[in-house]
């Protein structure tokens, strides 16, 4: 079932506005890929383009090397940003219906609906109307709708938005499990800490263009080294400002984040810190995703 998604040169204009500008990236099988970008960057338009929900001015969406058609889309799972379920329909009926639209038999769809509701912890709500469910539970039903038919590609637009920590853990856990089982997972989010925890790779776009793409580990360890230093009793970073080749990126309650140039020796920094007082923290830090994100948008 492994497959990979390729977006090639996607371009979409709405009048004067260019929502997607020759955007290309790929999503490999077995990975959870975070899709990041500021508001209005074109994330939702990209996801809608994968499902043919918006016309493209140019570009192709490919699945395993071939242009995506309706038959392939039936094997994909989609969770739109603005959740979509029939408010007055019973949860189990709704899932069974959506499963059947994905080509499942009636009994298989009903069975899958039951087991997913069970797995997401809302089996007792199967006979309730969707509109009677809380936001978090509606989101779980929406995820079940995307997963029901065992999709080869899962595209989720802000699946974690508005969830409480247990909800994030449940849905995040499911996404990782699906990827481990060979599914291709692409999801967008503004919660960068969670993206860092869940994703192997990220794609960052801005103004409809690709800015950064790669594995989270590679992005975190690439670029300049970062040091976190705390000197007892010192609240500012005056001691560091004199050291050549160092940039102070952040001072937070006595904890100083430094960006080191290639030529700077870590020992030099340690000596400068010790000269200022007793050093209680001295850690070589990975770049956080939020920093990668900010740099990508610069």
């Amino acid at each position: 079932m492994a497959g990979h998604l390729e977006l090639e040169n996607l371009t979409r204009r709405f009048g004067e506005l260019t929502a997607l500008d020759h955007l290309s990236f790929s999503v490999p099988a077995g990975q959870v890929v975070g899709f990041l970008g500021p508001n209005g960057a074109g994330k939702t338009t990209t996801m809608r383009a994968i499902f043919g929900l918006t016309d493209l001015d140019a570009g192709t969406v490919r699945w395993n090397g071939a242009p995506v058609s309706q038959a392939e889309r039936r094997r994909f799972g989609y969770m739109p940003e603005e959740r979509g379920l029939y408010p007055g329909m019973l949860v189990a009926d709704q899932l069974a219906y959506l499963g059947r639209l994905h080509g499942m038999s009636a009994s298989a769809a009903a069975g899958a609906a039951g087991s997913w509701l069970d797995r997401l912890g809302i089996a007792d709500r199967a006979g309730d109307k969707v509109e009677s469910l809380s936001h978090g539970n509606q989101q779980r039903v929406q995820l079940a709708a995307a997963l029901l038919h065992g999709p080869e590609l899962l595209v989720l637009d802000e699946p974690l938005a508005g969830l409480d920590p247990p909800g994030i853990d449940t849905i995040g856990g499911v996404l990782v499990e699906e990827a481990r089982a060979g599914c291709c997972v692409l999801f967008s989010s503004h919660q960068l800490d969670q993206v860092e925890d869940l994703c192997e790779s990220v794609v960052i776009i801005d103004h409809g263009r690709l800015t950064t793409e790669g594995r989270v580990d590679d992005l975190a360890t690439s670029g300049a080294r970062r040091l976190v230093v705390r000197v007892e009793g010192v609240r500012d970073a005056a001691w560091a400002r004199g050291v050549p080749g160092i940039t102070v990126s952040e001072v937070d309650g006595g904890e100083v984040r430094l960006v080191l140039e290639e030529s700077v020796d870590v020992d030099t920094v340690l000596r400068a810190a010790m000269a200022a007082g007793r050093v209680t923290t001295f850690v070589l830090e990975r770049r956080r995703l939020s920093e990668v994100f900010r740099e990508a948008l610069r």
């Binding site: 043919g52 929900l53 994909f76 603005e82 959740r83 979509g84 639209l101």
Partner: peptide, 10 residues
Amino acid sequence: SRVIEVLLAT
């Protein structure tokens, strides 16, 4: 209700 997006995806 935006269910249309889920439906038109299939």
